[in-house]
């Protein structure tokens, strides 16, 4: 008599809690999906991964040319050149926007796989983040180059505190919104059109090309802080601008909103994932 196997039960009741031990056992699939998407993304391109650097640099140049003088960032943060300012926003923004964009469509582009085989579905939108993460790292290297080129004064103590916080907000917010949109797009195909449009709007309500401080009304800032990218970008710039006062209320609003986004996003995803194969 052989040892009895662990019993697995397939039934209609689905948990909305992430099954972390199951995700761990599928860890290689995260890797393979990411690896596939990164490979495919740059196959048959002559410049390949150079595009990752070229895109933000060109955007920085264009933004600097058009908005640099008009916005006069120098006034609020002396010594910080506009190209560095806008790059530090774009670096995070590009991660967010490319993650949300590809995660939003990911369930549909992977529909043939979803219909034929089981694996934890959340791997798919998370993979979109990982792929954007690879681009982020490459762009980050270019960013450090720009910092050195402009000889920007950096407060290293602030960096050690604020960059991790910023990245955490970035990841939580992006993950939550990505999962949520990925699930919504399966059910309501309208989101195919809503996502690019929404991202365009979101670029302008996030302090990417302008400093948050140009908005003088406090309550407007509080409303804008509901956008997780608002906090992420603000905190990311703290070590550069040398801002010595942090608005605790702003920070609190952003923390709560990113946490809510990630909880609601994953909750909605888990609640609907069982039926992806039926309607994708």
């Amino acid at each position: 008599m052989q040892a009895q196997q662990k019993e697995n039960i397939i039934s209609s009741d689905r948990s909305v809690i992430l099954n972390l031990s199951e995700l761990w056992s599928y860890r290689e699939l995260f890797y393979f999906f990411t690896w596939r998407d990164v490979k495919v993304k740059y196959k048959q391109t002559t410049l390949g991964v150079i595009w990752v650097v070229l895109q933000p640099i060109l955007t920085v140049i264009i933004f600097s040319f058009f908005f640099g003088r008009a916005l006069n960032v120098e006034k609020t943060s002396p010594g910080l050149p506009y190209p560095v300012f806008v790059f530090s926003g774009l670096l995070l923004w590009n991660f967010f926007s490319s993650s949300v964009n590809s995660a939003g469509n990911s369930m549909l582009t992977n529909a043939p796989i979803i219909k034929k085989i089981y694996f934890p579905r959340i791997i798919i939108p998370v993979t979109a983040l990982l792929v954007s993460g690879v681009d982020f790292i490459v762009a980050f290297v270019a960013y450090v180059g720009v910092l050195i080129y402009y000889n920007v004064h950096i407060d290293f103590m602030a960096l050690l505190i604020f960059w991790p916080i910023s990245i955490m907000f970035l990841l939580l917010g992006t993950l939550g919104i990505s999962c949520w949109l990925a699930a919504l797009n399966v059910k309501y195909r309208d989101f195919r059109y809503v996502i690019p449009f929404g991202l365009q709007i979101a670029l302008f309500v996030s302090p990417v090309i302008y400093p948050a401080s140009i908005i003088s009304e406090r309550w407007v800032n509080y409303v804008l802080a509901l956008n997780p990218m608002y906090a992420a970008i603000n905190f990311f710039r703290v070590p550069l601008t040398g801002a010595n006062s942090i608005d605790i209320v702003l920070m609190l609003i952003s923390s709560v909103s990113s946490t809510l986004f990630v909880l609601l996003g994953i909750y909605y995803f888990k609640r609907t994932e069982a039926f992806f194969a039926d309607i994708a």
């Binding site: 009895q4 196997q5 662990k6 019993e7 697995n8 039960i9 397939i10 039934s11 209609s12 689905r14 979803i114 219909k115 034929k116 085989i117 089981y118 069982a274 039926f275 194969a277 039926d278």
Partner: peptide
């Protein structure tokens, strides 16, 4: 598809005592 966990059953359940791989 239910055996492969691709889609859940509406009612009822399946108890499996081994690793299932499916090739649909």
């Amino acid at each position: 598809k239910i055996l492969s966990k691709i889609t859940p059953p509406t009612t009822g359940r399946i108890v499996s005592r081994g690793r299932i791989a499916s090739l649909l």
